[in-house]
């Protein structure tokens, strides 16, 4: 039984499965790509054949433009086993964003699961993560330190709505990433009983429309740019993190600057970014989830792709597993939208 490190390797383009003839989440254009989810650092344009969940492919089209999400596209059902070259492959939900998948790969009796980005807590906008027992678990470690423990997101939303009630003449502008975080926040706000309008920066609208088309209702959404300042007093506005404290935000009424991110757990990070109301809501596994997932999939080997790998490898060792860093380059800090290209906001109104 060949060890997975003989058939799954890191190349400059990304993680390469030689017997299957494909890359997983390649950072450069390749012939055949398997894509875990549609965030810009995992899903790049310009590939030949792309295999991903139907939702991921749909969102890639929305973000990249028609026809740029791969010349040939294949969207298997969840759990549908395909044969690619000398490997068997299937997708299972990863619970990160709508359409996000883990990639299970079997070759000559051994099984590797590439988690992509994932989380374990319930998310009303996507299917939950399903642990798959495996020999090698390839995991992210964005929040791979025990200081990162995400609180109950419903409680964070209550904090936001409580602040809206306390400051009824101010706009609460919430920084959130355009894909996933934005729609999850909207659902959470709806579940907390807020069914009035929510105002959106133009860069957030296209993905919201795509979510709605795929069966995630988001309620009354309005473009913030087209709204008068008076209308935005007491309103909740969602915008990309790069916009909340910059010139764009000047149209808002005495804004309370909020940011929804797992990084907001650390007060100094909130302070340094000038965030008045941090909301600790993340689409990545926190430390406890990362550790619990290693146990759930019970893999003797843990490969860590990106984030704080040294601490997670240390924790893997404490569980009696072998951990090693994969040192994949190019996966960024998607949480805060830094370095990721933003869709420029369409110019509407004054």
């Amino acid at each position: 039984m060949p060890h997975p490190e003989t058939w799954l390797q890191v190349r400059p383009e990304g993680l390469w499965c030689e017997p299957g003839g494909f890359f997983v989440d390649p950072v450069e254009p390749v012939q055949r790509a398997v894509i875990t989810h549609a965030h810009a650092d995992h899903a790049r344009p310009g590939h030949g054949a792309v295999l991903a969940s139907a939702e991921t492919l749909a969102i890639m089209e929305v973000r990249m433009g028609e026809g740029r999400a791969g010349r040939a596209r294949q969207a298997p059902n969840w759990g549908e086993v395909l044969t690619l070259g000398d490997v068997k492959l299937w997708l299972q939900p990863a619970g990160h964003v709508l359409g996000s998948a883990q990639v299970a790969i079997e070759h000559r009796g051994s099984r590797v699961v590439v988690s992509g980005d994932y989380k374990r807590v319930a998310d009303p906008t996507c299917l939950p993560f399903e642990p798959i027992p495996c020999d090698v678990f390839v995991t992210e470690a964005t929040f791979g330190l025990p200081v990162f423990r995400h609180p109950d997101p419903a409680a964070e939303i209550r904090t936001l709505l409580d602040s809206v009630a306390l400051f009824p003449t101010r706009t609460h502008v919430v920084g959130c990433y355009a894909l996933g975080k934005c729609q999850r926040l909207i659902r959470l706000i709806r579940e907390a009983g807020w069914d009035g309008p929510l105002y959106l920066h133009g860069a957030l609208l296209p993905v919201c429309r795509a979510y709605e088309a795929m069966g995630v209702p988001l309620g009354d959404l309005r473009p913030a740019t087209a709204s008068a300042k008076a209308e935005l007093a007491g309103a909740i506005v969602l915008a990309p993190p790069s916009a909340i404290a910059d010139r764009w935000a000047r149209r808002l009424a005495d804004p309370v600057v909020c940011l929804a991110s797992g990084w907001m757990r650390v007060r100094q990070r909130a302070k340094a970014k000038g965030i008045e109301l941090p909301l600790v809501i993340s689409d990545h596994a926190d430390w406890d989830e990362l550790c619990a997932t290693m146990t759930d999939v019970d893999a003797p080997e843990i490969w860590v792709t990106h984030g704080r790998e040294e601490a997670l490898i240390h924790a893997a060792a404490a569980q009696g597993r072998i951990g090693r860093p994969l040192r994949l380059i190019g996966y960024g800090d998607e949480e805060e939208g830094e370095g990721a290209p933003l869709v420029p906001e369409p110019v509407t109104g004054p």
Partner: peptide, 25 residues
């Protein structure tokens, strides 16, 4: 875990905050 504590303290930079955040539930 002392190793994880050291890394966490190094990251957060404030002793009380590090302990508040990583105190086992």
């Amino acid at each position: 875990d002392p190793v994880l504590f050291a890394w966490s303290y190094d990251y957060v930079g404030d002793l009380a905050e590090t302990v508040a955040l990583m105190w086992p539930e």
